[in-house]
């Protein structure tokens, strides 16, 4: 996007409006993305703040980009994982013996939103259970962010081939879990629309 490129260059030239624009266009997305990794709000907000502080500090030396969100997400993901692992390590000290896994993209809480009682949420919950964390993460980039494979590879540090494989396996499992009961649901949706 030409727009992104221009905003980025303006930001590098110390234009305050460009910084404001980058922040306000992405803050909700970054926060929502952070929530997929952790439910610790202060950890997420601190990490976002560090991300922006470093952008400001290093702005003269930043590379060019034509996709600001992708640029942010790459750096943000790495920082988040590091912070989460750091905080988990401390936790392990507190509760010795308790095994903690890195459950990125866990399907609890807001993945399946507030009205857990409604049919659609239950259905989503059921379907997502069929996927592992990596699969959930990659489909999120593909179907929510609309990133292409090259961009996904950059974010997740995986090869093109493994990205394709991860997606295709995930889709097969999802299709399998869309059993006849779910087809009824599909049918319902269609009926209502008609």
């Amino acid at each position: 996007m030409e727009d992104d490129k221009q905003i980025w260059n303006e930001f590098k030239r110390e234009n305050d409006i460009a910084l404001s624009c980058i922040y306000h266009r992405n803050i909700d997305f970054l926060y929502g993305y952070g929530r997929k990794f952790s439910k610790d709000d202060s950890l997420i907000l601190d990490t976002i703040q560090d991300l922006f502080y470093d952008l400001i500090r290093n702005r003269k030396n930043l590379g060019a980009t034509d996709n600001i969100r992708l640029y942010l997400i790459k750096s943000f993901r790495r920082r988040l994982i590091r912070e989460i692992q750091r905080s988990r390590k401390q936790n392990i000290f507190q509760f010795e013996g308790e095994h903690v896994d890195c459950e990125f993209f866990s399907i609890e809480d807001d993945w399946v939103n507030a009205e857990t009682q409604d049919r659609r949420s239950k259905y989503i919950h059921q379907a997502l259970l069929a996927l592992n964390v990596k699969q959930r993460e990659i489909l999120y980039y593909k179907f929510y962010c609309g990133f292409d494979y090259d961009q996904i590879c950059e974010i997740m540090f995986i090869s093109y081939d493994s990205a394709r494989q991860l997606v295709s396996r995930a889709i097969q499992s999802l299709k399998k879990s869309l059993t006849s009961a779910e087809l009824f649901f599909l049918f319902l949706v269609k009926k209502i629309r008609l």
């Binding site: 909700d28 929502g32 993945w111 939103n113 989503i124 997502l128 593909k142 179907f143 999802l174």
Partner: peptide
């Protein structure tokens, strides 16, 4: 569309 929309859950806004 159903599969795509699985991932299109409403954002928790900051």
């Amino acid at each position: 569309q159903q599969i795509i929309r699985l991932f299109n859950t409403p954002e928790i806004k900051l």
